[in-house]
């Protein structure tokens, strides 16, 4: 692999890892505070799956890059501007509707993305994606089912869920927009082209929203951008301050 493609692969792995780490972290905040006991367990399962996927992607990134940083060094010792997650996943949890809508948008994307990445000739990358795909498929089933129950439940649940969809919509563009990183990897045969992904994602999301008796904001809404290059919302800094505090307070320690 030529150095520039390798650099693109590392960048891609950080995007994959950081998305799942930050989203898994957000979901873990629900532990002990869920609306019903069974859902506390369910959200925690999703958090565990995502953090597990993140750990694998970050580990691979560290292996491929020259400095050989471990997944922990990457997770706990980078600054916010060095993270490559989409802004969607760093948004605070809000109410259960906000969390489920955020999950719904992400899970629809995650299962499609991993479905493509598992075709990679890079054996390790394909392996992580394949394992993650089984999990992501289940996550999407769960979040879609909840979108439907909340959208088509009570007047209050519909109101909250529609508000969540409206508020989160501007973050979704970043998820299904791919730039030079993914293009270079596709041109060099590391991953398939992701050109069709946005369309498939929109189909899935539209179907789920319709079944939930909700609506999507009109076409042409402005989408946030920049976080794939490190330009995040203010939320990420606070999240990382909490996540990294113990590790950074004892920088030479083993845990």
């Amino acid at each position: 692999m030529d150095p520039s493609t390798q650099k693109a692969l590392i960048d891609f792995l950080l995007r994959l890892g950081d998305d799942r780490l930050i989203l898994g972290h957000r979901l873990s905040e629900w532990c002990g505070h869920g609306p019903v006991l069974e859902e506390d367990i369910a959200l925690t399962n999703i958090a565990l799956d995502l953090i597990g996927q993140a750990s694998a992607f970050l580990h691979l990134a560290g292996e491929i890059e020259g400095h050989r940083r471990s997944e922990d060094e990457l997770a706990y010792f980078r600054e916010a501007t060095q993270f490559r997650n989409a802004q969607l996943v760093e948004q605070p949890n809000g109410d259960f509707a906000f969390t489920i809508a955020r999950q719904f948008f992400f899970d629809a994307y995650n299962s499609l993305l991993l479905g493509e990445v598992q075709k990679s000739p890079h054996r390790q990358l394909a392996g992580i994606a394949a394992k993650g795909l089984a999990e992501a498929t289940y996550h999407f089933r769960h979040s879609r089912d909840w979108m439907i129950r909340l959208g088509d439940g009570t007047d209050e649940s519909r109101r909250r869920t529609q508000a969540a969809v409206n508020d989160l919509w501007r973050f979704t563009g970043e998820l299904v927009t791919f730039d030079g990183t993914e293009q270079q990897l596709a041109e060099n045969g590391i991953i398939p082209s992701l050109d069709q992904l946005r369309m498939h994602w929109l189909d899935r999301v539209s179907e789920g929203i319709r079944s939930a008796t909700l609506s999507l904001p009109a076409n042409g809404a402005t989408m946030v951008s920049g976080s794939r290059r490190g330009n995040h919302s203010e939320h990420l800094g606070h999240l990382l301050a909490e996540m990294q505090i113990v590790a950074r307070s004892y920088p030479d320690a083993q845990w």
């Binding site: 780490l21 972290h25 873990s28 905040e29 532990c31 002990g32 006991l37 069974e38 506390d40 367990i41 925690t44 399962n45 958090a47 565990l48 953090i51 597990g52 993140a54 750990s55 970050l58 997944e71 922990d72 997770a75 706990y76 909490e242 996540m243 505090i245 113990v246 590790a247 004892y250 320690a253 845990w255």
Partner: peptide, 26 residues
Amino acid sequence: WITRAPTLRRKIGLLAKVQDEAGHGL
């Protein structure tokens, strides 16, 4: 301490443990 667990392995381990406690309550 879930959000402040100092390594990914500890984060996962603690999450799984607390989740088990929910299951036990159930």
